[in-house]
Design a protein around this nucleic acid. Structure first.
Lengths: 146, 146
DNA sequence: CTTTGATATCAAGCTAACTTCAGGTTGCGC
DNA sequence: GCGCAACCTGAAGTTAGCTTGATATCAAAG
């Protein structure tokens, strides 16, 4: 509501803890948008602080930026997101966490069996069967339990 | 115990599901070792199948190769690891899983609070405070909830 | 002995998610 | 109205974890 609802990139950086360069990178990726001043400097909405906060939380969950982009698509473009918008998107994140916990729990159970038998054998061990093997594909760093 | 306790890289590749190039890379990184034939070809121990199986499981947990290298250091060099060796190292992995589950559970609880208040505010939200913020540092892909 | 498939090395390329650098412009406080 | 911090762009560098390509040698079947 104040006229300085528009903040420069340095302020956004300080408020989010993100590097200025990272924010510019996110803008290139389409995770945030900005308008420009007469002198070609970026001005962001105050609500982008929250937006980038969400990005960081989602990243900690191991989501890639493109996943996050998809999540953020649920937020209104142009308009400042309200509480309902954020609740909706937060719930989506919660589901993500839940499934990760489930997966880890299953993995732990399997590992327990393997500690029991001491096997870790690729042929017999529940932890490492053909299904699991198929999941590893493509280049780049492997992310958690995809 | 058979004389062909020594296997070529292609066999190791087939038994582990890893690409030949990946195995060579792992050898460079010191995760496995091999001896050479007269014609300069690698020969691995049969037990390296297990060793690389462990590597893959640990990777699924989000561990980096250097972390895994540290874990594997607990295994005997030269001698084929026995059941006790594997049990020990598996337990270490189990602890890792446990702490990840705990961290995720804590994160979920915090997120629940935030859904309740709809805030996701960086200043007030439990999910995103100064402690958490400090944890993001360095280049490269960010790994899960470090 | 030849052929074919498995191996070997070394360098370069790739993706993600950024950072760093070089060189130039803006804008606000005094 | 000046000076300096903050901002701009574009290209290149970084780390992890591999893959791909080029070129050459090995080994086992026929």
């Amino acid at each position: 509501m104040h006229r300085n609802d528009l903040i420069p990139i340095g302020t956004l950086s300080r408020r989010t803890g993100l590097a200025v360069s990272a924010i510019r990178y996110y803008e290139d990726r389409g995770l945030v948008t900005s308008i420009r001043t007469g002198g070609n400097q970026r001005r962001f909405l105050r609500s982008d602080i929250r937006r980038l906060g969400f990005v960081q939380i989602a990243q900690k969950l191991g989501l890639g930026l493109s996943d996050i982009e998809r999540e953020l698509a649920a937020l209104p473009q142009g308009r400042t997101p309200n509480i309902m918008d954020w609740q909706k998107i937060s719930r989506s994140l919660r589901k993500e966490i839940d499934s990760r916990i489930q997966l880890l729990t299953r993995t732990r159970n399997k590992l327990d069996e393997c500690i029991g038998c001491g096997c870790l054998s690729l042929d017999r061990c529940a932890l490492y069967n053909k299904e699991d093997r198929a999941s590893a594909a493509g280049p780049g760093p492997r992310f958690l339990l995809d």
